[in-house]
Design a protein around this nucleic acid. Sequence first.
DNA 1: CAAGCGTGGGT
DNA 2: TACCCAAGCTT
Length: 315
Amino acid sequence: MTPTTASAKATRTKGTTTSASKNQNPLHTPIIAWYEANQRDLPWREPGCPAWHILISEIMLQQTPVVRVLPIWREWVERWPTPADLAQASPADIIRAWGRLGYPRRALRLHAAAQAIVEKHNGEVPSDHAELLALPGIGSYTAAAVASFAFGQRHAVLDTNVRRVFARTVTGIEYPPTAVTAAETKLATELLPEQRAHVWAVAVMELGALVCTARSPKCAECPVSQQCAWRLAGSPPHTGPARKGQAWAGTDRQIRGALMAALRSSKEPLSHPQLVIEVPDSALRDPNQRSRCLSGLIEDGLVEPLPGDHYQLPA
DNA sequence: CAAGCGTGGGT
DNA sequence: TACCCAAGCTT
């Protein structure tokens, strides 16, 4: 690995007025201490891990569990160690290497991000939050995460884990709102310590991932259970509308997944009849849905149509 | 801005 | 067994 980055590049200047121990919210010390003792040994957290490799991990981890990301991430950083390497790869290779991680449009966006990094940033992952945010597939969370974890900067990193930890410990509710609210962003910003904010960010995330979990939180192991507003309120259950689960059976999403799985595993272009065999019964009975999904995949750049009603992954 | 977008393990 | 949900982004 080429250590082009790391916390050493922290752009923030060191403490000015307040000392680290003074005037900070009471969650900081116990959560960071807990993190130092309990953090997982993840490869993208190793010192000197290149910003590009960290960026890859963040994209892969969007809505995807760590255990599923690990082997694919290792394959990618070895195969495409720099943005320039990925920028030159073919979509078909990238989509196949993405495997069954899910949401394959992420792979395409990462490809596009690599090309933008080559063309606009001289092949180096930008450290500026706004420049990160402008890259394809990078939104508010990922921009803050890369700026924090790859460059040691100070940003409010608000992912689903952090939102849940703050909802419970500070706001006193079991689950955060469906969508990120201005109040949550404000709170996360206010809680940001002056020093080592990137450590605070990853520590809160880790606490949410390992202890303050969505279901069956391990409060007995929590370093801040004694000051958790939700616990102190008697752990009241979530009120309000039930969070709607994602439909799956019979949806376009299922059909798209089946079509992509068929095309990934085939070395040759597939005819339309061959594709039909691969999709679930629900779509067999609905040619409209099939064609809609295929068109959508082509529109997304995930499938390339060939003459004679054949299809393949984009060359 | 709510809906759409994959996949598979946990409970 | 059926949900639930996992380091979100885009339109």
